[in-house]
Each structure stands twice: as structure tokens, then as C-alpha cells.
């Protein structure tokens, strides 16, 4: 049985796993990017919020994602005597991780934004709105986009952890198919091809974007 034959024969299973993976990724990406950008923007201006977000990201950086996920899935639910769908637990945990990662990137870019570009805009009589639209946002966007893309690729790969708490995403589907037909080379090759097909172009785009649009800020 070739890789293609495995994919064709178990396409229903792979597609349903793919659907769950993409649903999970979309939740993680959108919540992390939206709320992370907002929190990053606010924490660059509000000191107490900066302290909270820095404490959050510092604490999270010391906890492996898997431990965080398992802790929320098993002991926390037992302590509070509740049962939460593992899909939502995984979405919540990975969204929190993504949120703090995005917050850090956005806050860093805002705090490190070179003041001289605002000063140059001021002395040229450019309004605050035009400075924001034509100077600050484009520069910050160019500086942060590659890192944000690479972070989101990392989050897509982190969805694999969800399989460990029984979320039927693509990796768990692949494991189940393998358990029934035992064709690990073909199945995990197919899985590898899937992740390569999704992640490589995104990483490539980030690399291209960084090289093409991220100007050296120190050189002007």
C-alpha cells in the first residue's frame, strides 16, 4: 500500500481529522492574534497591564504546553467537578499560549518603535492619524509579521498535543488508522507531507517577507 493509496482509502478519516485540526488552529490563531494584538497594544501603554501580561508570559514560558494541557484536562476538571469537551480544553490552552506569545511580540514592537520616526513626522507637520496609518502601522507590521507567522506555524504544530487528551485531530486519526492497518511508514509519511505542505509555504512566506520588507531600522 503506497502513501497515496492510504490517503485515498482512509480519506474520510483523514479529512475529518484535518477538519478538527483546522478548526482548532483557526480558534487558536484568531483568538491569539486578535486578543494578543489588543493586549500587546494596551500593555505597551498601560503599566499594570504590562506587568500582568509579562508575568503571564514569563510564567507560561516555564510550563510545558503538555503539562498545562493535562493539568486543565484532568486535575482541574476533577477539582471543580466539571467535564469539558477536550476540544475546548485544547483550544483554550493553546489560545492562551498563543495570546501571550502574540502579546509579547506586539508589545515589544511598540515599545521598541524608534521615536525618531515620530519626531520626523512631527516636524514635517504630519497629523497623528497619518503618522499612525502611514508610518507606525506599516513599520510595525513589517517588523512583526514574519515572527507572527512563524509563531502561528508553531501553534499549528502544537495542535498535535490535543491528540493526547483524545481530540480527534489529524494526528490522532493517523494513529488510529495505523493501529488498525499497521502501515507506519506510509501513514506518518502522509502526515509529514500534510504538515510540510501547510507549514513550509507559511515559513517560506515569513522568510521572504522578512528579507523583502523588513528594512534595517538602524540604517536611516
Amino acid at each position: 500500500m503506497t502513501v497515496l493509496e492510504v490517503l485515498i482509502k482512509y480519506q474520510q478519516g483523514f479529512l475529518s481529522g484535518l477538519k478538527v485540526t483546522l478548526q482548532l488552529s483557526l480558534i487558536i490563531w484568531s483568538s491569539g492574534l486578535i486578543f494578543g494584538t489588543i493586549l500587546g497594544g494596551l500593555s505597551a501603554r498601560i503599566t499594570w497591564l504590562a506587568l500582568i501580561s509579562r508575568f503571564g508570559s514569563f510564567t507560561l514560558s516555564g510550563i510545558p504546553i503538555l503539562v498545562f494541557l493535562f493539568w486543565l484536562h484532568f486535575p482541574a476538571q476533577a477539582v471543580f467537578n466539571i467535564v469539558v469537551d477536550p476540544f475546548y480544553t485544547a483550544a483554550f490552552v493553546l489560545s492562551i499560549v498563543n495570546l501571550f506569545a502574540v502579546t509579547d511580540i506586539v508589545r515589544g514592537a511598540l515599545l521598541e518603535f524608534p521615536a525618531q520616526y515620530n519626531i520626523a513626522a512631527k516636524v514635517c507637520g504630519i497629523s497623528g492619524l497619518d503618522t499612525l496609518l502611514f508610518i507606525q502601522i506599516p513599520i510595525i507590521f513589517r517588523q512583526t509579521l514574519p515572527t507572527l507567522i512563524i509563531t502561528q506555524v508553531g501553534m499549528l504544530q502544537a495542535t498535535l498535543f490535543a491528540s493526547l487528551i483524545s481530540v480527534e485531530e489529524i494526528f490522532r486519526v493517523a494513529q488510529r488508522i495505523n493501529a488498525s492497518i499497521y502501515k507506519p511508514v506510509e501513514i506518518y509519511t502522509a502526515l509529514g507531507i500534510f504538515f510540510l505542505a501547510v507549514c513550509l509555504p507559511l515559513n517560506g512566506f515569513a522568510y521572504w517577507f522578512r528579507n523583502t520588507f523588513t528594512r534595517n531600522l538602524s540604517e536611516s
Partner: peptide, 8 residues
């Protein structure tokens, strides 16, 4: 002196 041109 440092020009402060917008790099983008």
C-alpha cells in the same frame, strides 16, 4: 543630522 528617514 541622522536624517530620520522612514525606512519603509
Amino acid at each position: 543630522q541622522q536624517h530620520f528617514l522612514w525606512p519603509h
